[in-house]
Design a protein around this nucleic acid. Structure first.
Lengths: 121, 121
DNA sequence: GGCTTGCCTTGGAGTAACTCCAACCTGCTA
DNA sequence: TAGCAGGTTGGAGTTACTCCAAGGCAAGCC
């Protein structure tokens, strides 16, 4: 499939997909007779993984490292596991941040409705 | 207090605090006789709010708007409420993203331990 | 008084991760 | 044959910081 379709399937923009390719995070991508990129569903699966890792805050540097390891074969599994475990820990931290912020929003919204009921008097 | 102390209390770096001031997100900050900034605990409270909003993905543009409204007085409460409500919705979305990614990590880690137990044979 | 240390100042350059754009190419449809 | 949709590259622009050089000021020590 072409880049536009791959983009809608994985969640990234065409620009970002090309950028990830230039940054060495994708395997070699096929080209059609017109010279344009053609993506397999394998490619889209990988792009989708990158999308979710990035979306939840993994840095490109770590993603690049992970991409290299995946490309290198099974003997890199241990380091891959440790990257994904670390990211899992980061997710837990992020969830705590969301909780913290949600509390803050609740307090603020409360204070604001107090102001509103006061100014109605 | 000085900028270093304010920074450790609110979670932002001194550089970021100065940057937020330049960007019009802070009220006028006092200066000591040495010309250095002095922060009140009010200032630190506000910086802490900015820290959490930013930390959970609010854009600086929206934060600037919110800062203007807070500065402008009680008649802006309705728009402030709508900004915070919108951010609450964004938080919910983020939580869903974390869940999605956590599932993905679990699946991947599972596949990796399968590889490991296989290669041990 | 002179020197060092620590904290702060400003302006400006550098960075991460996109995002947008101009200029161009290719294949398809009318 | 023209026009349009979609894709290409290289490079500039954007957001939100982050780092750095060059220098100011106050306190403590000799």
């Amino acid at each position: 499939m072409r880049i536009a379709e791959a983009a809608t399937l994985c969640g990234l923009s065409p620009d970002t997909i090309r950028y990830y390719e230039k940054s060495g995070m994708l395997p070699p991508i096929q080209r059609g007779s017109d010279g344009n990129r053609r993506y397999t569903s394998e490619n889209v699966n990988w792009l989708t993984i990158l999308y979710w890792l990035r979306q939840t805050g993994m840095s490109m540097k770590v993603m690049q490292r992970y991409a290299v390891l995946v490309h290198a074969g099974d003997h890199t599994v241990d380091e891959r596991i440790s990257i994904l475990r670390d990211h899992g820990i980061a997710l837990t931290q992020r969830r705590k941040d969301l909780d913290r912020c949600e509390e803050l929003l609740a307090r603020k919204l409360n204070a604001y409705s107090a102001i509103k009921s006061h100014t109605r008097d």
